[in-house]
Amino acid sequence: MSDLLLDISGLSAISLREGGNPILRDVSLSLKKGEVRGLVGESGAGKSTIAKALLGILPRTVKVTSGTMRFEGRDLLTMAPRDLSAIMGSDIALIPQDPQTALNPGRRIEAQLTDGLRLRRGMNARDAHARALQLLSEVHIRDPERVLKAYPHELSGGMRQRVMIAAAFSLEPKLVVADEPTTALDVTVQKQILRLIRGMQEAHGTAVIFVTHDLGVVAKICDSVTLLYGGKVIEAGPTADVLADPRHVYTKALIAAGPRYDRPDAGLEPVPQWVFDQLHQEIRTGAKEILHG
């Protein structure tokens, strides 16, 4: 398949800190060009580990034990560091979780937004400035000249995340890893940011791995979804199929646990304990994941 962008297959990893505890168990997932895939799971499910592996920033305490991670046919895990760093930031970009810490408080937005353009594309200051203006208006920032001159603390959280999105798309990457990009934001801003990421993704034809713990977010912007628990893929497939016809009890319980806007007085349904018991049983016995379509 020529339009296959990313193909992760049989990826397993252990944590060296917790005495060789597995944190990824035989994870496989693939991504087509221009596809948005949600990577869903609770804390410790392994979604961030996958994102970090994609960016080549796994901490030293994590060791990949088997599997491949092919990006345009080349395995990121065995690639020479030099080739890898040429891809990172350029072909694979990151939208970080917290725009508060993702911008250097001591540098103006212009400097930070144009780093990639100058370092990776060899642009001169004037061209980079023009491109930065263009990018900021693309993420619907009204007064781009003022924002470029501003320091991060002069911008709101939503504005900062817009800047981060502009920076992520600045080098026309083929894949953007969005690491819970709305968790640190106000609920009212979250929606705008989601719409913006989807809009940018469509306009640039970029594939997105969207890391989140929120199935509601997945329903809004993801074409497909991979649900993880305990480092293992539980269920995966097109978003519409998985949400409309969840086959695994965990998926069903998660969907039931979400707030129902049509019945606001219904309350929240926690995932029952027996579901977790069954999950742990399946992880021990190495049961197959459920794949839709």
Binding site: I57, M88, P96, A102, G106, R107, D115, L119
Partner: peptide
């Protein structure tokens, strides 16, 4: 260990430049 260092590293900044340009000023 801040995120902005990580992002700058992804943008292809050398380690020396990360320290001098990104970290030192803060």
């Amino acid at each position: 260990v801040q995120d902005y260092i990580l992002l700058a590293r992804l943008k292809g900044m050398s380690r020396l430049r990360l320290v001098l340009q990104e970290a030192l000023r803060n």
